[in-house]
Every structure is written in C-alpha cells, then in structure tokens.
C-alpha cells in the first residue's frame, strides 16, 4: 500500500518535473535573487553584504518613488475600468445577440488586433492622436483647434493600454455570460422587473466572476507595463517598469531597483487581494 502510493507520487513528480524545473529556474530563482538583492548593500554596479533595509528606507524618504508607484497604480486602475466598461457590452452582444453558430466567428474577429505587433499598433496611435493626426484633422475640418492628444502623456498611455487590453477582457466576461441560464432572465421579467433591473439584479451579479477575472487579467500586466510609457510618452511619464529599468540598467543600482520591484509586487498583490475580498460573495458558491 505504502509502496504503491510512493510510486504514484514518484510518477506524479516525473510528470510535473519539466514544468517544475522551468518554473524553478526561470521564476523562483530570479524572484529569490531579486528579493535577496533588495536587502543587500548596493552601490554603482556593485552589490555586497551586509544585509540592510536601507533600500526600502530610501523608497519612503524620496517622494519620487511613491509618486511613480501611485501614478502607475492609478493609470492601471483607470485603464482596467475603461477596459471592463468597453468589453462588457461587446461580450454581452456576442453572447446574447449573436446567433450561436456565429459566436466563434465573432470571437475570432475580436482577436484580430493581435495579428499585428504591439509595437506597430502603438506607433499607429501617433497617426491617430498626434499633432496633425486623424483626430486633429477631423477637428480642423469642423473649425476647431487641434488637441494634439499625444502630447498629454498620461492620457495617451491610458488610451493605448485600454485599446490593447480590451480583447483580453472580453473573453472571461463572455464565458461567464454564456453560463447564465436564460430562463433566469425571463424569471426576472416575469416577476415584474424591467430588462435593465433584471440585468443589474441577475445578469451582472452572476457574471461577476468573469468581471473579476477580467479585472485581474488587465490590471496586473498594465501596472507593470514597460513598452507603452516608453513609446507613447517617450519616457516622460515613467511607470514602475521604466523606473526599475533606469535603476537596474542605467544607474546599475541593483539593490535599489530590486527593492522597488519587490515593493511594487507587494502593492499589486495587496490591491488584487483587496479587490477579491470585496467581491468574494460573487466568487464560488454557485452552481
């Protein structure tokens, strides 16, 4: 008995070992290194003992660190909000108003933006938002001053990120909408509620697991987005990832950069946990 369970455990280990080795070497080891670096004494291009919390203390002392952290979180929250608000109606339309045999075609169409490189899509936003771009030309044709939206760095970052992540948000919401028993919506109306009230009282609560999944899928990568601020705002409005890059690669300050990385990881984890706890009545417990 003990022998069989032991051999079962062995074969289980064998099965997961490729993934486990991959995860350990490429995720756990670098993560441990970053955490270790963050409590070592750093200098220009050097890292050495003794252990110290000086790197973390620096984060508290200099307001620029807190500002960048807060700015990144706010940008990510706004992007997440916009993305969900845009993605929900799309998912709703495909789930409720598209004929069943056409649904896969629609989902396929939603993924079309991914056929083009993200870098190219970001560059194309300049054509739309930049000085003399599509938006400004349209405004000029009706006699309005050009806006040159691209010069507002944070606004541009939000627009570009929201566009980039919308398709990711559609899919989890779509899946949760597909699972809603349509007779529940009829029951809501049968009991005297309007379509809108039925939506807010039945459909939306039942699809919250999908919304929560979408929020996490969008929020976590946008907080740490590197490419968009770099390209769209030309580095004028650095977010967390850009700042870490500056610390690690430009200033060669591994200890400070690592402390910043660990802190931002903790912040994101805390925000996600708070969000999940606030919505825990929607998660699980349903058949």
């Amino acid at each position: 008995m003990a022998a069989t369970s032991k051999s079962e455990a062995m074969s289980g280990l064998k099965l997961i070992s490729p993934t486990a080795i991959y995860v350990i070497l490429l995720l756990a080891v670098p993560l441990a290194t970053v955490i270790l670096y963050s409590v070592l004494t750093g200098g220009r291009g050097t890292i050495s003992l003794p252990f110290t919390f000086e790197n973390y203390a620096q984060l508290l002392e200099k307001p620029v660190y807190g500002y960048i952290m807060l700015k990144s979180l706010l940008i990510a929250l706004v992007v997440t909000f916009i993305t969900i608000v845009l993605a929900y109606p799309v998912a709703y339309f495909v789930s409720f108003h598209v004929r069943p045999e056409r649904k896969s075609l629609w989902l396929f169409l939603i993924t079309i933006p991914f056929w083009t490189s993200y870098i190219i899509r970001v560059s194309l936003w300049f054509v739309i938002l930049g000085y003399g771009g599509v938006v400004d030309s349209a405004l000029a044709s009706i006699g309005l001053e050009p806006l040159n939206i691209a010069s507002y760095s944070i606004l541009s970052i939000i627009i570009v990120l929201a566009h980039a992540y919308a398709p990711f948000a559609v899919l989890p919401i779509f899946v949760s909408l597909e699972k809603v028993d349509r007779s529940l919506l009829e029951a809501g109306q049968d009991l005297g509620e309007s379509r809108w009230a039925t939506f807010t009282r039945v459909t939306l609560p039942l699809t919250m697991p999908g919304v929560i999944a979408s929020v996490l899928i969008v929020f976590i990568p946008t907080v740490g987005d590197y490419v968009t601020p770099k390209l769209v705002a030309d580095g004028k409005e650095p977010m967390i990832a850009n700042f870490i890059e500056t610390q690690l690669l430009k200033l060669n300050n591994y200890a400070q950069g690592s402390a910043f990385a660990v802190t931002s990881m903790v912040m994101v984890a805390v925000v996600c946990l708070i969000f999940i706890l606030l919505n825990r009545r929607f998660i699980g417990g349903q058949k």
Partner: peptide, 29 residues
C-alpha cells in the same frame, strides 16, 4: 410586455436565482 402582465410562471427548470438566498428569491418581485 412580460413584466407588466398579471401572470407569474413556475419554470420547468424553476429558474431559481443561484446567487440569492431562498428569501431573496421569494421576495425578488
């Protein structure tokens, strides 16, 4: 429309709202 008719239906699948308690279901209308 259905929500203004003086009718109520017990669905074949019962259509009980799964995210609500029994009393929230009964008091829905």
């Amino acid at each position: 429309p259905a929500n203004s008719r003086p009718t109520n239906m017990v669905f074949q699948s019962y259509a009980i709202f799964p995210h609500m308690t029994v009393e929230e279901n009964v008091g829905f209308g």
